[in-house]
């Protein structure tokens, strides 16, 4: 089943790094995935997120306000 990875943020460098790390984690695990970048503030708020960047996996926010490493993200993708 394809994992849906969403990067919630306004498009700054750390948001982009979070996306890179998430994709690296997914590739390392060899899973099917799709990435969506969510930069619309209203959509970000609809997740209840107050601190960005945030990471959601299959619709559930697993981290907010942090730049996770690929290793940390792997734990959420298993």
């Amino acid at each position: 089943m394809t994992k849906k990875i969403q990067i919630l943020g306004t498009g700054c460098m750390k948001c982009n790094r979070l996306q890179e790390n998430a994709e690296a984690a997914a590739k390392a695990l060899g899973i099917d995935y799709e990435v969506e970048k969510v930069s619309d503030i209203d959509k970000i708020m609809s997740f209840g997120v107050m601190s960005t960047p945030a990471l959601a996996v299959d619709g559930k926010v697993v981290s907010a306000g942090k730049l996770l490493t690929a290793d940390e993200i792997k734990e959420f993708l298993k």
Binding site: G48, V49, M50, S51, V61, S63, G65
Partner: peptide
């Protein structure tokens, strides 16, 4: 929102 398990609110609170 915390009681309702809204993941974005819980994670944002942890990052406060």
């Amino acid at each position: 929102g915390i009681g309702g398990g809204i993941s974005g609110m819980i994670e944002s609170t942890k990052a406060a």
